[in-house]
Amino acid sequence: MYQLIKDFKQGLWEEHPLFVMILGMCPTLAVTNTAINGLAMGLATSFVLISSEIVISLVKKLIPNDVRIPSFILIIATFVTFTDYFLKAFLPDIAASLSLFVPLIVVNCLILGRQESFASQNPVHRSIADALGMGIGFTWGLVVLSIIRELLGMGSIFGAEILGTGYRQMIFMILPGGAFITLGILVGIINLINLKRSGN
């Protein structure tokens, strides 16, 4: 039980997929212009991560070592296609705003990385704990980033006006440049906190 909690907690801060491991950058930068998109992307990625970690840790003994990576990618691609069609059918608005970035979950290095370094070596229950932790970690990272960008860029959070109509929107924040710089500064801040902590 202690082991499970440890596996779960890893992804939340210590080995945070975005801020510490710098994985899965493409969707992180591309869809975080509004908080709702960031949250949706986080949840979609978490779903794919959890389901593929479960399947892969179950079938890992059946897969020869040499075709490990292509097999993992195939399994991930299957779940991603499922997610894509599911979103299009039941949440069309979200599917439209995430557009190209749902299929790109296939090549999100976070997902393949966790299969390779965790699910293919550990039993199912530990893989679930790991996937949950990493998924929640990834999601909170996306949400924080997108809240900052949406607030400064459009003066709202989750579409609700916060800063009033008089606020001069920093359009820069929702453009590509703003995405890179906000993420750079956030990673810097997390590094600083970790440096301070380990220094003491």
Binding site: L62, I63, P64, S71, T78, T81, Y85, F86, K88, F90
Partner: peptide
């Protein structure tokens, strides 16, 4: 064989998903 098997299972599952969501 392994890759083809995974491919077949995945195609099978996805065709159901497609029919369900289309």
């Amino acid at each position: 064989f392994t890759l083809v098997m995974i491919g077949i299972i995945s195609g099978f599952v996805l065709s159901f998903v497609f029919q369900w969501t289309a």
